[in-house]
Design a protein around this nucleic acid. Structure first.
Lengths: 211, 211
DNA sequence: GTCTATAGCGCGATAGAC
DNA sequence: GTCTATCGCGCTATAGAC
């Protein structure tokens, strides 16, 4: 089961159980379809008419739920559920294992939320409103992040700008995924492709530099 | 002097010395301004009217030089001059020095041609015509690329999908540059920012993984 | 809460004069 | 080679009925 599906279920069961009105369902459907279209076509190239048609409602209905196209864009990149349920055994790991687990967790999160991350990374330069969301995502420290920072502080690991480092890893990962999608359009991305995982880990671990 | 400026001069002096007509100059200006707008605003969000206004000609004139907006897009990502003048002393370097020189060369090329690379990386998924250009760029092997591949073949270096590796590095670099541009919009990017260079090299060399 | 109808504008692209 | 003028369409967003 995909993480996104888990999120959807949890959202339905917990957050919205008391507002499962017809309107709320429609609003959720609009967000889901708009996110998919923004992800695949880009924000500027997607029309409100196209979104409305795909959802199966009129454009007017869409504008009852969102003030404008920009409000809809902001809604699509909002995580449906904040990070939690995160394990916290990281302090027991060796530096190498910690870095491995940190990388694994990062690319897993990005992979299962490709649409959100892709939209944020590609539209942020042109829509300052999105940037806040962007930095909010990246500055939300996971337990693994905190453990890394602690060890950097203690001098057990080389110091690095963690946000810039994350931006680099995510940018690298998204670029490879996009590359693959272009040359193998039929590919069904259920799991992270092995060659991409291998190349990314080779990059992060500096495999080429260690002989 | 910027690489792009060198390119412009060389192009003027060699390729176009016999067609320095008024029309050719206009066409070149259109490409330069369109590239800048596509780079900063995206293809879909840039109108032909805006380009024409910035160049100082009418839209009709623009359509005399290019069949359509898409033809103009293709022209903007075309390198003004193919790679050459490349040194070829790479075979004398150690593995580590070769990798360092290869990385340095890659990020220098990308940095001085940010608009082209940014446009290709961000618009390729939605414009298959661009993909050909994209792969043509990446498959154009430099001497450093060839030396890397040779050593991988000989088993002197771990084998990697070099194109995917390049896509990852470029994606990482562009993402960091974009990030910086968002949070320091006034920054004048004459040279590669030190923190980005440092973070990128840390990533590629796997600094964190080597204690 | 959703619909039909439409306002008002900007888009890509072209015709035809000079 | 460049202009002015314009076509026809699709866009975001809204008014008003049900």
């Amino acid at each position: 089961m995909l993480l996104t599906e888990v999120w959807s279920c949890l959202m339905m069961d917990t957050h919205h159980s008391n507002k499962q009105t017809k309107g709320a369902i429609t609003k959720h459907k609009i967000i889901v379809e708009a996110r998919d279209l923004f992800y695949r076509q880009g924000f500027a190239a997607t029309s409100t008419a196209q979104i409305a048609k795909k959802v199966g409602v009129s454009e007017a209905a869409l504008y009852k739920h969102f003030k404008g196209k920009m409000a809809l864009l902001l809604a699509t990149v909002e995580p449906e559920r904040p990070h939690d349920q995160e394990v916290s055994y990281f302090s027991t790991l060796s530096n190498l294992d910690l870095l491995g687990a940190w990388t694994e967790q990062l690319i897993s999160t990005v992979f299962h939320n490709r649409p959100q991350y892709t939209i944020i990374f590609s539209e942020s330069p042109r829509h300052p409103e999105l940037s806040e969301n962007y930095i909010r995502h990246l500055h939300q420290l996971t337990n693994a992040d905190k453990e890394l920072l602690t060890r950097m502080d203690k001098g057990q690991l080389p110091k690095l700008d963690l946000v810039l480092f994350q931006v680099g890893i995510i940018g690298s990962f998204l670029a490879m995924l996009t590359h693959k999608r272009i040359y193998e359009p039929t590919l069904n991305l259920q799991d992270i492709p092995e060659d991409i995982r291998h190349t990314l880990i080779s990059i992060v671990e500096g495999k080429l530099f260690q002989q």
